[in-house]
Protein backbone atom coordinates (compact mmCIF):
# COMPACT_ATOMS: atom_id res chain seq x y z
CA UNK A 1 0.00 0.00 0.00
CA UNK A 2 2.83 2.37 0.86
CA UNK A 3 4.59 1.75 -2.36
CA UNK A 4 1.78 3.02 -4.69
CA UNK A 5 1.29 6.17 -2.58
CA UNK A 6 4.95 7.02 -2.74
CA UNK A 7 4.93 6.20 -6.44
CA UNK A 8 2.06 8.67 -6.99
CA UNK A 9 3.69 11.32 -4.81
CA UNK A 10 6.93 10.74 -6.68
CA UNK A 11 5.19 11.13 -10.02
CA UNK A 12 3.50 14.37 -8.85
CA UNK A 13 6.76 15.75 -7.52
CA UNK A 14 8.62 14.81 -10.67
CA UNK A 15 5.94 16.57 -12.69
CA UNK A 16 6.23 19.63 -10.48
CA UNK A 17 10.02 19.46 -10.62
CA UNK A 18 10.01 19.73 -14.41
CA UNK A 19 6.83 21.67 -14.95
CA UNK A 20 7.60 24.67 -12.77
CA UNK A 21 10.98 25.54 -14.27
CA UNK A 22 9.47 24.77 -17.67
CA UNK A 23 6.70 27.22 -16.83
CA UNK A 24 9.36 29.70 -15.81
CA UNK A 25 11.20 29.10 -19.07
CA UNK A 26 7.97 29.43 -21.03
CA UNK A 27 7.27 32.69 -19.21
CA UNK A 28 10.79 33.86 -19.95
CA UNK A 29 10.51 33.07 -23.63
CA UNK A 30 7.08 34.70 -23.76
CA UNK A 31 8.53 37.78 -22.11
CA UNK A 32 11.50 37.72 -24.46
CA UNK A 33 9.11 37.53 -27.39
CA UNK A 34 7.15 40.41 -25.89
CA UNK A 35 10.38 42.37 -25.51
CA UNK A 36 11.21 41.65 -29.15
CA UNK A 37 7.77 42.79 -30.18
CA UNK A 38 8.23 45.88 -28.04
CA UNK A 39 11.61 46.48 -29.71
CA UNK A 40 10.00 46.24 -33.10
CA UNK A 41 7.31 48.62 -31.94
CA UNK A 42 9.96 50.97 -30.61
CA UNK A 43 11.57 51.05 -34.06
CA UNK A 44 8.38 52.54 -35.38
CA UNK A 45 9.47 55.94 -36.61
CA UNK A 46 5.94 57.18 -37.00
CA UNK A 47 6.27 60.05 -34.56
CA UNK A 48 6.38 63.80 -34.96
CA UNK A 49 8.18 65.74 -32.23
CA UNK A 50 7.41 69.00 -34.01
CA UNK A 51 3.71 68.32 -33.99
CA UNK A 52 3.06 70.46 -37.04
CA UNK A 53 3.00 67.73 -39.64
CA UNK A 54 5.96 67.25 -41.90
CA UNK A 55 4.11 65.71 -44.74
CA UNK A 56 5.10 65.78 -48.36
CA UNK A 57 3.40 68.18 -50.71
CA UNK A 58 1.32 67.15 -53.64
CA UNK A 59 3.35 66.27 -56.69
CA UNK A 60 3.32 68.86 -59.43
CA UNK A 61 3.62 66.88 -62.67
CA UNK A 62 4.42 70.02 -64.67
CA UNK A 63 7.30 70.93 -62.38
CA UNK A 64 8.62 67.36 -62.39
CA UNK A 65 8.40 67.35 -66.19
CA UNK A 66 10.32 70.61 -66.44
CA UNK A 67 12.97 69.28 -64.08
CA UNK A 68 13.37 66.14 -66.22
CA UNK A 69 13.56 68.22 -69.41
CA UNK A 70 16.14 70.54 -67.86
CA UNK A 71 18.25 67.57 -66.74
CA UNK A 72 18.17 66.06 -70.24
CA UNK A 73 19.03 69.37 -71.89
CA UNK A 74 21.90 70.09 -69.49
CA UNK A 75 23.30 66.57 -69.99
CA UNK A 76 23.24 67.24 -73.72
CA UNK A 77 24.78 70.67 -73.03
CA UNK A 78 27.71 68.97 -71.28
CA UNK A 79 28.24 66.57 -74.18
CA UNK A 80 27.95 69.37 -76.75
CA UNK A 81 30.25 71.59 -74.68
CA UNK A 82 32.99 68.98 -74.44
CA UNK A 83 32.61 68.30 -78.18
CA UNK A 84 32.96 72.04 -78.82
CA UNK A 85 36.11 72.14 -76.71
CA UNK A 86 37.60 69.24 -78.67
CA UNK A 87 36.68 70.79 -82.00
CA UNK A 88 38.07 74.17 -80.91
CA UNK A 89 41.37 72.56 -79.94
CA UNK A 90 41.48 70.85 -83.35
CA UNK A 91 40.71 74.14 -85.08
CA UNK A 92 43.50 75.92 -83.21
CA UNK A 93 46.05 73.21 -84.09
CA UNK A 94 45.03 73.25 -87.74
CA UNK A 95 45.03 77.07 -87.69
CA UNK A 96 48.57 77.14 -86.31
CA UNK A 97 49.69 74.67 -88.99
CA UNK A 98 47.97 76.83 -91.61
CA UNK A 99 49.67 79.97 -90.25
CA UNK A 100 53.08 78.26 -90.28
CA UNK A 101 52.45 77.01 -93.78
CA UNK A 102 51.93 80.58 -94.90
CA UNK A 103 54.29 82.63 -92.78
CA UNK A 104 57.08 80.61 -91.16
CA UNK A 105 60.50 80.34 -92.78
CA UNK A 106 60.00 76.61 -93.33
CA UNK A 107 56.43 77.00 -94.58
CA UNK A 108 55.67 75.61 -98.05
CA UNK A 109 52.77 77.99 -98.67
CA UNK A 110 50.83 75.02 -100.01
CA UNK A 111 47.52 75.92 -98.34
CA UNK A 112 47.14 72.24 -97.40
CA UNK A 113 45.66 73.09 -94.02
CA UNK A 114 43.33 75.81 -95.18
CA UNK A 115 40.29 73.64 -95.94
CA UNK A 116 40.62 71.31 -92.91
CA UNK A 117 41.00 74.40 -90.72
CA UNK A 118 37.89 75.99 -92.21
CA UNK A 119 35.85 72.77 -91.81
CA UNK A 120 36.95 72.44 -88.19
CA UNK A 121 36.17 76.13 -87.54
CA UNK A 122 32.63 75.96 -88.89
CA UNK A 123 32.02 72.68 -87.03
CA UNK A 124 33.21 74.35 -83.85
CA UNK A 125 30.88 77.30 -84.39
CA UNK A 126 27.93 74.98 -85.05
CA UNK A 127 28.65 72.83 -81.96
CA UNK A 128 29.06 75.97 -79.86
CA UNK A 129 25.71 77.33 -81.05
CA UNK A 130 24.02 74.04 -80.11
CA UNK A 131 25.76 74.07 -76.71
CA UNK A 132 24.64 77.61 -75.93
CA UNK A 133 21.14 76.98 -77.20
CA UNK A 134 20.69 73.96 -74.93
CA UNK A 135 21.72 75.99 -71.90
CA UNK A 136 19.70 79.10 -72.73
CA UNK A 137 16.52 77.25 -73.67
CA UNK A 138 16.52 74.82 -70.72
CA UNK A 139 13.57 75.45 -68.40
CA UNK A 140 14.34 76.62 -64.85
CA UNK A 141 12.03 74.75 -62.45
CA UNK A 142 13.88 75.90 -59.33
CA UNK A 143 15.06 79.48 -59.08
CA UNK A 144 18.75 79.86 -58.36
CA UNK A 145 20.06 82.02 -55.57
CA UNK A 146 21.87 85.11 -56.87
CA UNK A 147 25.58 85.53 -56.25
CA UNK A 148 29.02 85.02 -57.72
CA UNK A 149 30.04 81.39 -57.96
CA UNK A 150 31.41 78.78 -60.35
CA UNK A 151 28.29 79.12 -62.48
CA UNK A 152 29.01 82.84 -62.90
CA UNK A 153 32.58 82.07 -63.99
CA UNK A 154 31.25 79.48 -66.44
CA UNK A 155 28.82 81.98 -67.97
CA UNK A 156 31.37 84.81 -68.16
CA UNK A 157 33.86 82.51 -69.87
CA UNK A 158 31.20 81.19 -72.22
CA UNK A 159 30.06 84.69 -73.22
CA UNK A 160 33.71 85.65 -73.71
CA UNK A 161 34.06 82.61 -75.96
CA UNK A 162 31.00 83.75 -77.93
CA UNK A 163 32.72 87.09 -78.60
CA UNK A 164 35.98 85.33 -79.42
CA UNK A 165 34.27 82.91 -81.77
CA UNK A 166 32.41 85.69 -83.59
CA UNK A 167 35.68 87.62 -83.89
CA UNK A 168 37.42 84.52 -85.16
CA UNK A 169 34.93 84.00 -87.97
CA UNK A 170 35.11 87.68 -88.95
CA UNK A 171 38.92 87.80 -88.83
CA UNK A 172 39.14 84.52 -90.74
CA UNK A 173 36.97 85.95 -93.49
CA UNK A 174 39.03 89.17 -93.61
CA UNK A 175 42.26 87.15 -93.74
CA UNK A 176 40.88 85.03 -96.58
CA UNK A 177 39.84 88.17 -98.45
CA UNK A 178 43.30 89.70 -97.96
CA UNK A 179 44.92 86.51 -99.26
CA UNK A 180 42.70 86.41 -102.33
CA UNK A 181 43.31 90.10 -103.08
CA UNK A 182 47.08 89.68 -102.72
CA UNK A 183 47.49 91.98 -99.73
CA UNK A 184 50.32 90.01 -98.13
CA UNK A 185 51.10 92.38 -95.24
CA UNK A 186 47.42 92.81 -94.33
CA UNK A 187 46.91 89.06 -94.63
CA UNK A 188 49.75 88.37 -92.20
CA UNK A 189 48.66 90.93 -89.58
CA UNK A 190 45.01 89.82 -89.67
CA UNK A 191 46.06 86.15 -89.60
CA UNK A 192 48.24 86.84 -86.59
CA UNK A 193 45.35 88.53 -84.77
CA UNK A 194 43.07 85.67 -85.82
CA UNK A 195 45.58 83.21 -84.37
CA UNK A 196 45.79 85.13 -81.09
CA UNK A 197 42.03 85.30 -80.65
CA UNK A 198 41.87 81.58 -81.45
CA UNK A 199 44.12 80.75 -78.53
CA UNK A 200 42.18 83.16 -76.30
CA UNK A 201 38.85 81.59 -77.29
CA UNK A 202 40.19 78.10 -76.62
CA UNK A 203 41.36 79.27 -73.19
CA UNK A 204 37.93 80.74 -72.44
CA UNK A 205 36.19 77.51 -73.47
CA UNK A 206 38.53 75.47 -71.30
CA UNK A 207 37.86 77.88 -68.42
CA UNK A 208 34.10 77.45 -68.89
CA UNK A 209 34.47 73.67 -68.70
CA UNK A 210 36.88 73.71 -65.76
CA UNK A 211 34.81 76.21 -63.74
CA UNK A 212 32.60 73.39 -62.46
CA UNK A 213 35.57 71.70 -60.82
CA UNK A 214 35.84 74.50 -58.26
Amino acid sequence: MRAPIFRRLGALFAAALFALPARGLARESAEAAATDRESETNLDFDFDLFGDGTKRSEEDPALAGRARLRRGMLQAHQIAGLTTLGLMATTVVLGQLNFDDHFSASGAGSGAYSTPHRIAAYSTAAAFAVTGGLALLAPVPYEKAPGFDAGTVHKLAAFGAVAGMAGQVALGMIAGDALRSGQARRFESVADLHRFTGYATLTLLATAAAAWLF
Binding site: E59, A67, P141, Y142, D149
Partner: peptide, 28 residues
Protein backbone atom coordinates in the same frame (compact mmCIF):
# COMPACT_ATOMS: atom_id res chain seq x y z
CA UNK B 1 28.70 77.52 -52.78
CA UNK B 2 27.29 77.05 -56.27
CA UNK B 3 23.71 78.15 -56.96
CA UNK B 4 23.54 76.05 -60.14
CA UNK B 5 24.55 72.91 -58.27
CA UNK B 6 22.11 73.67 -55.45
CA UNK B 7 19.28 74.07 -57.98
CA UNK B 8 20.32 70.76 -59.48
CA UNK B 9 20.23 69.19 -56.03
CA UNK B 10 16.65 70.44 -55.62
CA UNK B 11 15.76 68.73 -58.88
CA UNK B 12 17.22 65.34 -57.94
CA UNK B 13 15.64 65.31 -54.47
CA UNK B 14 12.28 66.36 -55.97
CA UNK B 15 12.15 69.36 -53.64
CA UNK B 16 8.75 70.60 -54.72
CA UNK B 17 7.05 67.48 -53.37
CA UNK B 18 9.54 66.82 -50.58
CA UNK B 19 10.63 70.18 -49.19
CA UNK B 20 12.22 68.77 -46.03
CA UNK B 21 14.87 66.23 -45.23
CA UNK B 22 13.76 64.56 -42.00
CA UNK B 23 15.60 62.31 -39.59
CA UNK B 24 13.98 60.32 -36.81
CA UNK B 25 16.15 58.43 -34.37
CA UNK B 26 15.60 56.08 -31.45
CA UNK B 27 17.95 54.95 -28.68
CA UNK B 28 16.15 52.33 -26.61
Amino acid sequence: GNANRDAHMLEVVRAAQNPLVILRGLAR
